[in-house]
């Protein structure tokens, strides 16, 4: 797996607390049995009226097309465990998510896709969002080696913000071991020994 250390690109602000995964991707799109078209659907009902006309949403605005970093607020990705949510964001083009806090399952799902979900303070997130709103062409760099975001508009205006994420998830990304299946399957003998010690759902008490 590739090592994920720095993500560079423009940032799209999605302002608001408690943005749940039903809002990120409405359930009707979960009827598709592959993820291949998920990139067409992020925030669908917030971006399109029932008749298909475009509504005002950051994901629709011309200046944020091609953005690589999503800037959210508190409890981003709460609700349903649907991996369709990060799949939709990633397939739209998002390569890193920054927020004040994340719902657990969402943050874990991001890492499974090689996408860092990093936390910054309320003040810093507000400042980053302000920058992305006022100067959408600003380049942001999420650096997982230093656990910092660098962004700046105009000469000598570089903003540096500290970010955090659980060390194990950071390790997985920077070392390129975020595809967990290989790691887990490698220990199959230990797993078999463990299985033999534990009760079984058929009632057998090992």
């Amino acid at each position: 797996m590739s090592k994920v250390t720095t993500i560079t690109g423009r940032a799209v602000p999605v302002v608001g607390d408690d943005i749940d995964t039903d809002r990120i991707i409405p359930a009707r799109y979960l009827k598709e049995i592959t993820f291949s078209r998920m990139g067409e659907y992020p925030f669908y009902d917030e971006r399109f009226a029932p008749d298909g006309t475009k509504k005002d949403h950051p994901f629709n605005r011309a200046e944020y097309q091609g953005a690589a970093i999503l800037l959210g607020n508190v409890n981003f990705g709460c609700g349903s465990s649907r991996e369709h949510a990060p799949q939709a964001l990633v397939r739209w083009g998002i390569k890193a998510v920054v927020a004040e806090s994340f719902a657990e399952i969402f943050a874990g799902n991001c890492v499974m896709l090689g996408t860092p979900a990093v936390v910054a303070s309320k003040e810093d997130v507000s400042a980053l969002q302000k920058l992305a709103i006022e100067h959408p062409d600003t380049e942001f760099v999420v650096n997982l080696d230093k656990m910092e975001i660098h962004a700046g508009h105009g000469a000598g205006q570089t903003m540096v913000v500290k970010v955090s994420m659980p060390p194990s998830r950071r390790n997985a990304l920077v070392n390129g071991t975020w595809d967990s299946t290989a790691l887990l399957v490698a220990n199959s003998a230990l797993v078999a020994a463990k299985a033999a010690q534990l009760p079984h759902p058929n009632g057998r008490q090992a």
Partner: peptide
């Protein structure tokens, strides 16, 4: 606890999670 689809793959493949 709930998991995402890539983790469903992990459990199917190994009966384990990270």
């Amino acid at each position: 606890f709930g998991i995402g689809t890539s983790q469903v793959r992990d459990v199917l493949a190994s009966q384990c999670l990270c």
